[in-house]
Computed example of a mutant assay.
Amino acid sequence: MALEPIGAVNALYPSLTVIVGARVRGRVNWMTVAHVGIMNHAMGGVPQYLGISAHPSHYTNIGIREHGEFSINIPSQEMLEATDYVGIVSGKTTDKSTVFPILEGELVNAPMIATCPVAMQCRVAQKVVVGEHELFIGELVATYAQPEVLHQGKIDLMRVNPILFDFRQMAYHALGERTGRPWNAGKALKKRVDATPSA
């Protein structure tokens, strides 16, 4: 079988579903976002940057622009109903501040969800317009986690049980089983290649 062209289709889904928190016009607001990502791999004290992308018409964008702060909350599968809800109603017409218990952190305008397995606060470092969307690149300021999702001090994704979003199929998914270890799964092939005499 060979690959066949299917057009310029974004095949990077599924993506992690998160809830972005911001204070908008004095009130806490939540927005569900699946276009979220890691901007750099930081080691040795170098700042870490995360990005969220949303159309500028979103109500939450107003607060992020005004205060330069936002939170990224990672909900569990158990929070799927409320996660979807804050994504289908707008803060312009609905007060979403009471949907989740609020956790205040270091950044006063980046409210977090106290019941999420993991939450992070970011300070906007740069805003980039990409097509019709605003990409907010935030410097990671602080991360909070429920003790039960930690294993030897590190966040365990299986314990978080995050929600994955597939835009093409319009479906939510859960994580599957662990299939290997990075920087380890390819060692056997490397050994065989290294042992093969070069032509």
Rank of each mutant, 00 (worst) to 15 (best):
residue 163 I to A: 00
residue 171 A to C: 09
residue 120 M to A: 10
residue 136 F to S: 03
residue 4 E to K: 15
residue 165 F to K: 06
residue 191 K to W: 04
residue 99 V to C: 01
residue 163 I to R: 01
residue 167 F to P: 00
residue 22 A to S: 15
residue 116 C to N: 11
residue 193 V to Q: 04
residue 75 P to Y: 03
residue 94 T to E: 07
residue 145 A to R: 06
residue 176 G to K: 06
residue 105 G to W: 02
residue 17 T to K: 03
residue 55 H to Q: 08
residue 125 A to V: 08
residue 38 I to A: 11
residue 77 Q to E: 09
residue 150 L to P: 02
residue 47 P to V: 12
residue 51 G to L: 12
residue 101 P to H: 10
residue 165 F to Y: 15
residue 73 N to Q: 05
residue 25 R to K: 15
residue 54 A to V: 08
residue 107 L to F: 07
residue 140 L to Y: 05
residue 74 I to T: 04
residue 93 T to P: 01
residue 105 G to E: 00
residue 192 R to G: 00
residue 161 N to M: 04
residue 35 H to I: 11
residue 96 K to V: 12
residue 42 A to N: 02
residue 69 E to S: 04
residue 146 Q to S: 08
residue 52 I to M: 05
residue 182 P to I: 14
residue 197 P to A: 04
residue 134 E to M: 07
residue 2 A to Q: 14
residue 92 K to I: 12
residue 160 V to M: 02
residue 10 N to K: 08
residue 61 N to E: 02
residue 90 S to G: 03
residue 93 T to M: 05
residue 195 A to S: 13
residue 106 E to Y: 10
residue 140 L to V: 10
residue 12 L to D: 07
residue 14 P to Y: 06
residue 106 E to T: 14
residue 153 G to E: 10
residue 31 M to T: 12
residue 39 M to P: 00
residue 119 A to T: 14
residue 159 R to K: 15
residue 100 F to W: 15
residue 183 W to K: 13
residue 96 K to P: 08
residue 85 Y to E: 05
residue 54 A to S: 13
residue 46 V to A: 09
residue 197 P to L: 06
residue 174 A to G: 14
residue 115 T to I: 13
residue 77 Q to W: 13
residue 118 V to D: 00
residue 52 I to N: 00
residue 120 M to G: 01
residue 116 C to V: 12
residue 100 F to H: 05
residue 88 I to V: 12
residue 18 V to C: 09
residue 169 Q to D: 11
residue 138 G to L: 06
residue 82 A to E: 13
residue 32 T to I: 08
residue 167 F to Y: 10
residue 124 V to K: 02
residue 39 M to Q: 07
residue 140 L to N: 04
residue 53 S to L: 13
residue 88 I to K: 07
residue 48 Q to F: 05
residue 132 E to L: 13
residue 37 G to E: 01
residue 124 V to S: 01
residue 44 G to C: 08
residue 38 I to V: 13
residue 157 L to S: 08
residue 54 A to E: 01
residue 20 V to A: 09
residue 82 A to Y: 09
residue 79 M to R: 06
residue 109 N to L: 03
residue 15 S to Y: 10
residue 80 L to V: 11
residue 127 K to I: 15
residue 179 T to V: 15
residue 56 P to V: 03
residue 65 R to N: 13
residue 48 Q to T: 14
residue 173 H to M: 12
residue 2 A to I: 12
residue 134 E to C: 06
residue 153 G to H: 10
residue 108 V to R: 14
residue 151 H to P: 00
residue 4 E to S: 09
residue 156 D to A: 11
residue 68 G to I: 08
residue 184 N to C: 08
residue 80 L to Y: 03
residue 5 P to H: 04
residue 77 Q to R: 10
residue 170 M to L: 14
residue 57 S to W: 08
residue 144 Y to M: 05
residue 113 I to A: 00
residue 104 E to Q: 14
residue 146 Q to E: 11
residue 95 D to Q: 12
residue 134 E to N: 15
residue 125 A to S: 15
residue 191 K to F: 07
residue 28 V to F: 02
residue 68 G to V: 07
residue 23 R to K: 14
residue 19 I to S: 04
residue 34 A to D: 09
residue 36 V to W: 11
residue 121 Q to S: 02
residue 18 V to W: 03
residue 136 F to Q: 03
residue 164 L to C: 09
residue 93 T to S: 07
residue 168 R to L: 15
residue 156 D to I: 07
residue 41 H to W: 12
residue 34 A to K: 11
residue 2 A to H: 14
residue 54 A to C: 09
residue 43 M to N: 10
residue 180 G to R: 06
residue 184 N to W: 12
residue 71 S to W: 04
residue 45 G to K: 06
residue 102 I to Y: 00
residue 179 T to I: 15
residue 183 W to I: 11
